[in-house]
Nucleic acid binder design. Structure first.
Lengths: 243, 243
DNA sequence: GGGCGTCGGTACGGAAGCGGACAAAGGGGA
DNA sequence: TCCCCTTTGTCCGCTTCCGTACCGACGCCC
């Protein structure tokens, strides 16, 4: 298994751990396939494993008692979940599921906690990621409050694009409407706006980014701040082509 | 200073620490008066002290590059700030200021980090509070997305009421409009709705809660979830009358 | 190749909230 | 007491978005 530790991870957290820290994970990490809609976590249910994503996108969603929901976080190979494990909490009120199919290395939560307890370096990195995700949450809250739907959609597409391998994002409008906490037809019309500006190409079940820079410009101040903060806290994500 | 440790704290975190842990803070805690609008933290500026509030209300606000802002967290004697210190991060993109005047015990951040490093109990409690605050953020994001202004105002008044000593909350409409990320006149009309239902009494610079249960009913599913989670993670806040 | 379930496009009335502006009321200082 | 500044109340037109409904298109399965 030695070669696994030789920078073969795509997950940006695992990649940034020193060899000695990675060795503590030895034999405890298990590679797993995560199909679309795979439920990683349900509200108030203790999670058995923590996931370090190699690929694909997971979505953290919060739901109100009356059934309204909103996405509060999005995790790809930039991160892991649940951060509650890092904070020594058994369960949280969120549900986490795969938005785009992918793979991850997972580790039983008790094992992760053991590693966290014995290795300052691991603890420090995952703590910083926890902060990065909190910052993402904060900007999501801001965006929900002050930005228009099409800007929020642009933001969201950009965040997915950051974590996807190609320029395609495979999702239905229905699904995006849940993520953005808006009506489904509102997604349709917002997509048309972006498509009209040649920023994306949209067809049944798929959105393709055509003009990334243009999308960023369109999203205005909705996009960028928490990405900068991630870079500061964790560091740049090495792009796939480099790997 | 011995008597300070004898359950004299009003801060719910300090109150929940065992005597042995509290002794580690000995001599490092400094009581400080926090006037209204006192700036505890500015975006991207490292904080010098961490604050454990005895009284009053602090507000965590995030601002977009173009100057739009929204409150993402509210902290009283239920908690402390900055949680970034718990996560071993030097600075965060938020600004924190006093919304209602109060007092706190503060400790230099490096000293707090030292205590965190040497005392598992302290680290565990503050980690759990960090999670509680993240949950609050998440529900704020949800509320911003799906609830009407008057419901969000009710939620916000309830959260302030939880942390205030009496039933009065001294704030201008202008201020509340920033917290809720809405227009100032929208606050005025929303307050009139609540006042019309005899849930609150509102006059220049002050809002008084008249019917707490009614307010909770009015707020519907906007209020309650993250409070339950706080209780589960940390425990009940002992009310002032008991102290 | 026909049928059905899922997904996307569109339409329409209505409500909520914004932007902006202005007037009234309270209250502190000179 | 008067003035001025802060705070609150109100108004109007306008935009955005919702709720709801319905239809068309795609594509999978039998």
């Amino acid at each position: 298994m030695a070669d696994v530790w030789q920078g073969r991870f795509r997950n940006n957290l695992l990649r940034r751990l020193p060899e000695t820290s990675l060795e503590r994970f030895a034999g405890r990490l298990e590679r797993i396939e995560l199909p679309r809609l795979y439920q990683l976590s349900s509200p108030h249910q203790p999670m058995e494993h923590a996931y370090f994503f190699e690929n694909g996108i997971a979505s953290v969603v919060v739901r109100s008692p009356e059934g309204q929901h909103s996405e509060i976080g999005i995790i790809g190979r930039d991160g892991m979940c649940p951060t509650s494990a890092v904070l020594d909490v058994d369960a949280d009120p969120f549900s986490i599921h795969m938005q785009m199919q992918g793979q991850a290395y997972r580790i039983p939560v008790p094992d992760l906690k053991a590693v966290l307890a014995e290795d300052r370096e691991v603890h420090r990195l995952l703590s910083r990621y926890t902060q990065a995700l909190a910052v993402q949450q904060a900007y999501t809250a801001l965006s929900n409050a002050v930005h228009h739907i099409d800007e929020r959609l642009a933001r969201w597409i950009l965040m997915c694009h950051d974590r996807a391998d190609g320029s395609d994002i495979s999702l239905t409008h229905e699904f995006m409407s849940i993520m953005l906490a808006v009506r489904r037809p509102s997604v349709t019309t917002a997509l048309h706006v972006l498509e009209g500006k040649k920023l994306i190409y949209s067809e049944r079940g798929v959105v393709s980014v055509r003009n990334r820079a243009g999308l960023e410009a369109f999203a205005r101040d909705a996009y960028g701040e928490c990405e900068k903060e991630y870079e500061r806290l964790i560091g740049t994500i090495v792009s796939r082509s480099v790997i």
